[in-house]
């Protein structure tokens, strides 16, 4: 079994949701981001989404976009993202890592070669925002060859017919985008999201994580009651930015503490009254 499948199976046995933090690889620089990445499992991360910096992201809000630009300004590249994961894997063999980002850096790297190198670096899945099912075959074939999951998005605009298309070929888990919008701009409605996750459960055994618009431990807990995983991105990236002038250790400690609060809240959610 893959690290992703292992992790969700274990979480199911424990009856708790996954806490899935998102950070941008290289924000504000390689060494700090690596230190933060290494601190995340200890802070309660069950799976980590690592952002590939891109100059022109289409689905990200201003906070994440600014983090990509900081990373690029510090010299981050896709080969260095792989390098970061290689270094992380020396100390952690179990926490799944999914790369999230736009397709063009992968296209420039060479899609087939990238799938091979990413798998060898210890990456478990790919979440490419501008590769919908109609266009992701180019990635899915080499990814499958090297045991990488290609995670697909489900959105509030996905009707039953669209869901057929999305589920046909989906692997790893599903990422339910809890609002029609860009990352980090609005607050989600947990009732609508719960109903949407219930519709997904009726159709697939793949775990359903929920992301976009979850900013606080309270919101994370509300989603953790019904979803298999809770993704928090923009709020964490904003924390990184708030500490960007602090010493590296202080930045990492501060962001890790915020992640711990989120993780505790997610992990305790199903023990609370619903």
């Amino acid at each position: 079994m893959s690290r992703i499948a292992d992790r969700f199976a274990a979480l199911r046995r424990d009856n708790r949701a996954a806490f899935v933090p998102f950070i941008t690889a290289g924000d504000p620089d390689f060494e700090t981001a690596l230190a933060l990445l290494q601190a995340l499992p200890e802070a309660g991360a069950d799976l980590i989404e690592l952002g590939i910096p891109f100059s022109d992201p289409m689905a990200d809000g201003p906070v994440n976009q600014a983090s990509y630009l900081r990373a690029l300004a510090s010299g981050m590249t896709l080969p260095k993202v792989l390098d970061m994961v290689r270094k992380f894997r020396k100390g952690d063999a179990k926490t799944p890592i999914v790369l999230m980002g736009s397709y063009n850096p992968i296209h420039a790297y060479g899609t087939a070669r990238f799938a091979k190198d990413a798998a060898e670096a210890g990456i478990d899945g790919l979440l490419i925002v501008d590769l919908p099912p109609e266009e992701d075959e180019v990635l899915r074939a080499p990814a499958a060859l090297h045991g990488l999951d290609v995670v697909r998005f489900v959105t509030p605009t996905s009707d039953a017919k669209r869901l057929d298309t999305i589920l046909d070929g989906a692997s790893g888990y599903l990422y339910y985008v809890s609002m029609a919008g860009i990352t980090g701009t609005k607050v989600i409605s947990s009732d609508e999201t719960e109903a949407a996750v219930a519709r997904l459960r009726a159709r697939t055994r793949l775990p359903a994580t929920v992301g976009f618009g979850i900013k606080t431990p309270e919101q994370a807990a509300a989603v953790a009651r019904f979803a298999d995983g809770v993704v928090v991105g923009t709020a964490i990236v904003a924390r990184v930015y708030e500490n960007v002038n602090a010493k590296r250790a202080a930045l990492v400690a501060n962001v890790a503490e915020f992640c711990s609060e989120l993780a505790n809240s997610v992990h305790a959610a199903r023990g609370k009254d619903v």
């Binding site: 289409m58 689905a59 397709y103 925002v129 501008d130 590769l131 919908p132 109609e134 266009e135 697909r152 998005f153 489900v154 959105t155 509030p156 605009t157 996905s158 009707d159 669209r162 999305i166 985008v177 029609a180 919008g181």
Partner: peptide, 18 residues
Amino acid sequence: KGHFGGYGGRFVAETLMP
């Protein structure tokens, strides 16, 4: 599928696909 040879296509976020 909107392709001109190897060009074009629909490289958009899933939210936009419908």
